[in-house]
């Protein structure tokens, strides 16, 4: 039950993108197409899962004073792994995410969960937390990129959905479009949450 709650936490209540609003750099930057959004979400989920596992296992061996550099080392190792892996086996995705793959190292979502969760909780709960947060991050990126790609290019996953009558709103694939759609989506999420949960738990 507790595991399920840890997992569900990241999907909705503490969704990193819509509720905690952390890790915004990739959220805003790579969500111009759904392929990029999905790839970034899955890459981040992998790094989050692997890092939380390792950090949860070695947390007792790490002196408090160097815990942040130690976490960054662990995270950087997995990010470099993902970087090589994508370049070797999925070169088109690696090319379109380019700089943002190495930048996963400084995604505060990962360091944040390592510090706030994996360093204090046992392995099985850390796995549930990382999967919840990772998938929460992934669906948020997918939703945001779906809105932006559909409005900005009239397509989804690169397949043209809207016909020739549709005049693409170019601003949606530019950085400004990311802020506009993110703001509206966060607003909608807040509205839904306000109506369904009558604020019974404390914040």
């Amino acid at each position: 039950m507790q595991l399920l709650n840890d997992f569900k936490n990241g999907l909705w209540n503490e969704n990193p993108t819509f509720r905690l609003v952390i890790g915004m750099c990739p959220v805003l930057a790579v969500t111009n197409t759904m392929t990029n959004g999905l790839a970034m979400g899955l890459a981040t989920t992998f790094v989050l899962l692997a890092s939380e596992i390792v950090i949860s296992l070695i947390k007792k061996l790490i002196p408090n004073d160097v815990r942040i550099p130690s976490y960054i080392l662990v995270i950087a190792t997995f990010v470099t792994f993902v970087d090589y892996f994508l370049k070797a086996f999925f070169p088109p995705i690696a090319a379109s995410l380019s700089l943002f793959v190495p930048l996963i190292v400084v995604n505060c979502l990962i360091l944040g969960r390592a510090e706030a969760f994996a360093s204090k909780n046992p392995l099985h709960r850390s796995i549930a937390d990382s999967l919840g947060m990772g998938f929460g991050f992934t669906w948020a990126l997918l939703l945001l990129s779906a809105v932006r790609e559909l409005l900005g290019m009239g397509s989804m996953f690169g397949i043209q959905i809207l016909g020739a009558w549709y005049q693409p709103m170019v601003i949606m694939v530019l950085p400004a479009g990311a802020f506009i759609s993110l703001g509206i989506l966060v607003g909608i999420m807040n509205y839904i949450t306000k109506n369904t949960t009558r604020d019974t738990h404390c914040h």
């Binding site: 002196p63 550099p69 792994f81």
Partner: peptide, 22 residues
């Protein structure tokens, strides 16, 4: 000691990944 060991392990793993993907 902690940071050195972590750095070494990390470098060791990445050396293998690099060889494999290059």
């Amino acid at each position: 000691l902690t940071l050195t060991v972590l750095g070494l392990v990390s470098a060791f793993i990445l050396a293998f990944v690099f060889q494999w993907t290059l």
